[in-house]
Design a protein around this nucleic acid. Structure first.
Lengths: 235, 235
DNA sequence: GCTAAAACATGATTTTTATCATGTTTTATA
DNA sequence: TATAAAACATGATAAAAATCATGTTTTAGC
């Protein structure tokens, strides 16, 4: 159930200039403003579901969101993590298809729904938005292809380390070097592409080796260099 | 070395209407025509290389192209296969970055190079092209995410079967149900994300089980239904 | 604060898949 | 067409990772 929350006008949204709408003119922002539907999403709630018809995109105003695909036996694979300023659900909208993944809130969120029609109209009118959109898609695609390569070629150990670094890049660090997101071990496994037990084991191993410190669901990065080396990444 | 080949005018190009330029107006097509550089690429030759500066996109006029990323020990992962009418090299161009993969010809090819500037200018002017571009990107991204899920969750056997079906979808069948592409076993392995020996073993197994028939490098599909079942796909 | 469920943890075992070894066949080219 | 190199094939072995089993801790809801 989506409860509406107090509107922040799009043009004053703190995420505006770090979002895909950074180059979009005020008049178009106002068109979106007029038609958007904002809602509060509780932690764990589903924003949209794989296979359902795409009626618009969602702009994340606050909170963190995971996008998952479910394999044959219903096993989750997390294919993307989104943060405030990100939009989700655009793939389906652009390809005119159904949602290919399920979006659910990792914590309480505020999201703004932008109906299909207005988004497509503005995309037609605003070359800058289209271009930003293409940039976002290109970056996602490059990342996805890297992930494919790593899944195919790197051992789980390296991929777990890499995932911790990815979480750091995506959500940043709190004071005290703590990665600013809480995922269950199962979710980490579903992001890495491994069994939950394997992820747990490797995390405790990294903990023992003083690469990270496990503080409940939080991960504190103790030795960034060692972590990068464990991930076998040098760039 | 790229030798030029006899120009086919873009507006008369047989691939035009099945390409991303299907909705692009004649005057813009002519602008491309004026600046494109066509060349013949020999089988095995590199069209562009991962890490080099993206100076434009390539439109494939004839032939088949593989796009590969190279992992830590230089191991190839094929991330995309392209066919006539497809464009390659757009990710790097759009994100303003270097090529993230290496393109090489699987057979003799004719490709048309469209310089960065004109492509970007037309992208700005032509909302229809931008939209088609976004559709292409969205579809690629969805496919990539599916591939991630399958790499993480499906056993090699299913992925090999799936890859044969993917090759069929991409390049079609000759008369007599033969998949219209020749890849080495190593390339098939690098597409599946497995060891060459494992790919070889599974292909011979499928051969023995009368699912496919191996005719040199060609694969003939004997039992499509069994193949789909082996891939654990029902859609 | 009690209780059930979920999440976390860890050892033992099995399965899957990669690697290694070796030989044959095909392909390219001198 | 001779010859080397690449590609293909297959058995044996090793390594990696999943699964199974079981117990503990944490979390959420009454």
């Amino acid at each position: 159930m989506k409860a509406s929350f107090e509107h922040v006008e799009c043009k004053h949204c703190s995420n505006r200039f770090k979002s895909v709408f950074c180059k979009t003119e005020n008049d178009m922002i106002n068109e979106i403003e007029a038609l958007k539907i904002c809602s509060s999403i509780k932690k764990g709630d589903t924003i949209f579901r794989e296979g359902s018809y795409a009626s618009g995109v969602y702009c994340i105003n606050a909170g963190k969101v995971k996008l998952s695909m479910f394999g044959d036996e219903g096993k989750e694979q997390i294919v993307r993590l989104a943060k405030p300023g990100d939009i989700i659900g655009y793939k389906a909208l652009l390809s005119g298809d159904k949602y290919s993944s399920t979006a659910s809130a990792l914590e309480d969120c505020n999201v703004c729904f932008i109906p299909r029609e207005i988004f497509l109209v503005i995309l037609q009118k605003d070359a800058a938005l289209s271009f930003e959109m293409m940039k976002v898609l290109s970056n996602e695609l490059r990342q996805a292809e890297e992930k494919i390569t790593h899944l195919a070629q790197k051992p789980v150990r390296e991929r777990v380390a890499e995932t911790i670094l990815f979480l750091k890049e995506t959500y940043g660090l709190d004071a005290d070097n703590i990665v600013n997101v809480s995922l269950t071990r199962e979710e980490i496994a579903n992001l890495v592409g491994t069994a939950t037990e394997t992820a747990i084991r490797l995390l405790s191993e990294f903990n023992k080796d003083n690469i990270i410190e496990l503080i409940g669901k939080k991960i504190k990065i103790i030795d960034q260099q060692k972590l990068t080396k464990t991930a076998n990444l040098y760039d």
